[in-house]
């Protein structure tokens, strides 16, 4: 009996004999199996990725920390919040995440900002983790473009419990022509910290989603800071030149190879 019970490696785990196909995709293929189930290692790997994605959503937004990092770059910022009072409210009431709280409205009334070309908002969205990790390195690449384009920038707004459309409310109250909101995207298992940038020209409360341009998947493993900054700057400059954003502004920034386009761009600026 004890001989029959001796457990061999083949009995506890079946490898999938097409493991070399993994090189072609990040999809979870050739995981092997045990009966109809996942091998222990793969089950735990999935659990870890899911845990990270969940934590990314519920990680509290830390505007003070971001404010400090921006100060060290010599960039001024202010903190605002949406009308969604906590994370639960934010998740079930998308409408509240799209407008400012009464307190923030009063703050802006007192702040009495006179206006600029561009308002940059950093909003937590669905991943504070993404914002904490990607927003400042992206801005380091992005801000020099605007200086070269002679576009003025309002103090950067750090917005808590924020949906994309909160940028409209903020930009309207701060009298800015164009809003760029950098926001944490819905985390996937392989990308819990992906940042999105939404650009809306001539913005006001009630703008449609089709009036925006989006640059997504900004993270070192996806769209790099350099490429993302170039794309955003390209879209902003185009929006200012045709006087609109959204479906009528086609993103042709990829038409040339990146290197050439970037060089052309710098040439044009200088």
């Amino acid at each position: 009996m004890s001989d029959e019970l001796s457990i061999t490696e083949e009995q506890i785990l079946q490898h999938d004999p097409w493991e070399e196909l993994r090189q072609f995709t990040d999809a979870r293929i050739a995981l092997g199996r045990t009966g109809g189930g996942l091998p222990t290692k793969e089950y735990l790997r999935f659990s870890l990725d899911h845990a990270r994605a969940r934590d990314a959503i519920h990680e509290p937004f830390n505007p003070e920390w971001l404010k400090g990092r921006l100060e060290s770059l010599g960039v001024e910022s202010i903190c605002l919040e949406s009308a969604a009072i906590d994370r639960h409210t934010f998740l079930v009431r998308p409408d509240l995440g799209k407008r400012l709280s009464q307190k923030s409205i009063e703050y802006l009334n007192g702040y009495d900002y006179k206006g600029a070309d561009i308002c940059i908002v950093i909003g937590d969205g669905l991943s504070s983790k993404a914002v904490h990790k990607q927003s400042v390195p992206l801005l380091e690449e992005l801000l020099p473009y605007f200086a070269k384009l002679h576009l003025t920038i309002a103090p950067i707004v750090l917005a808590k419990q924020s949906r994309v459309a909160l940028g409209d409310d903020i930009a309207e109250r701060m009298h800015c022509k164009c809003v760029i909101i950098l926001i944490g995207e819905r985390p996937g298992l392989t990308s819990p910290d992906s940042l999105g940038a939404y650009i809306t020209y001539d913005t006001f409360r009630g703008r449609l989603e089709s009036d925006r341009n989006c640059v997504s998947n900004i993270r070192p493993e996806g769209l790099s800071y350099q490429r993302a900054a170039f794309k955003i700057a390209w879209l902003v400059e185009s929006a200012f030149s045709i006087g609109k954003s959204g479906i009528s502004l086609k993103d042709n920034s990829d038409d040339l190879t990146l290197q050439t386009a970037e060089m052309l761009y710098y040439q044009k600026l200088s």
Binding site: T25, D26, A27, R28, I29, L31, R33, G36, G37, L38, E42, F46, D49, H50, R186, P187, G188, L189, T190, S191
Partner: peptide
């Protein structure tokens, strides 16, 4: 969906397993 993780649509469904 391979491993229940759709890497294009960023959501989890049921897997081949």
């Amino acid at each position: 969906v391979p491993g229940a993780d759709d890497i294009m649509l960023n959501y989890q469904s049921t897997s081949y397993h």
